[in-house]
Design a protein around this nucleic acid. Sequence first.
DNA 1: CTGGATCCGCGATGATACTG
DNA 2: CAGTATCATCGCGGATCCAG
Lengths: 141, 141
Amino acid sequence: MKVTIGNKELEGTQENAMDHFSDNHSTNHYCPVTDVIDRISDKWSVHAIILLGKNEKLRFGELKKGIHGISQRMLTVTLKHLEQDGLLTRTVFPQIPPKVEYQLTELGRSLLGQLIKLSEWASENMVHILRAREEHILKND
Amino acid sequence: MKVTIGNKELEGTQENAMDHFSDNHSTNHYCPVTDVIDRISDKWSVHAIILLGKNEKLRFGELKKGIHGISQRMLTVTLKHLEQDGLLTRTVFPQIPPKVEYQLTELGRSLLGQLIKLSEWASENMVHILRAREEHILKND
DNA sequence: CTGGATCCGCGATGATACTG
DNA sequence: CAGTATCATCGCGGATCCAG
């Protein structure tokens, strides 16, 4: 289970998280954590979760308007995935015209916290990354 | 700059992060934060960063062995992106056979912290997600 | 209004061969 | 060993039409 490349290991709280990731490296194939990470790091999923973090309940059309560039199909697919993963609930109001409300579950809200921290990191360090990219372009002259 | 769908806003530290994301919703198109998020949430990038978090320096071949399933091409592309973003350094040793070492920068290490927290969330809540998926499958009978 | 179903283009990715 | 270059492919995701 433990994987060492080279011969260095991590100490403290990092060790547990690393070990989970280790499943994916070396010779093993399927890793649930990687599976979950792949899903929640999905481009549209992140936007949907963040948007639902700003608004307790949202209808399909509101989400569509709120996530710029997303197609109807991808919104449907994304919301279906998030619902399957238990990150949000889908409530159908049997009326004409139909009305469907989406809302984060408690699980979804806990994930929201993580995504916000990640987005905070991104906004704080964005300038460094953008500058690094520019310098890299200049270097190729 | 501020976007409200419905009429709810967030309080506290979440507000800033949300506002950055807001650029991507509504009518605007390009958002640097989204750009950065898309890049750092890339499947292979996460693996490479995590692996380089476990080992201060790694050669190309070691990374290839450590990230199961990645092709040579994608490893090259991924490392190039991470280098362009200033998240890792690439050191070439001019010798035969060639030797190249990759190492996280300080920026990369700070991101590593965030990714580890995300992976910790994933490993802690993985069971709920997997159970939710199973229940959803059972529901479709 | 909220999707489901279908078609399809294209970019991302893998496989392979080659090189300093 | 550490890539580069090229070709083939495959699935994401957009566009469109249809339905309840």
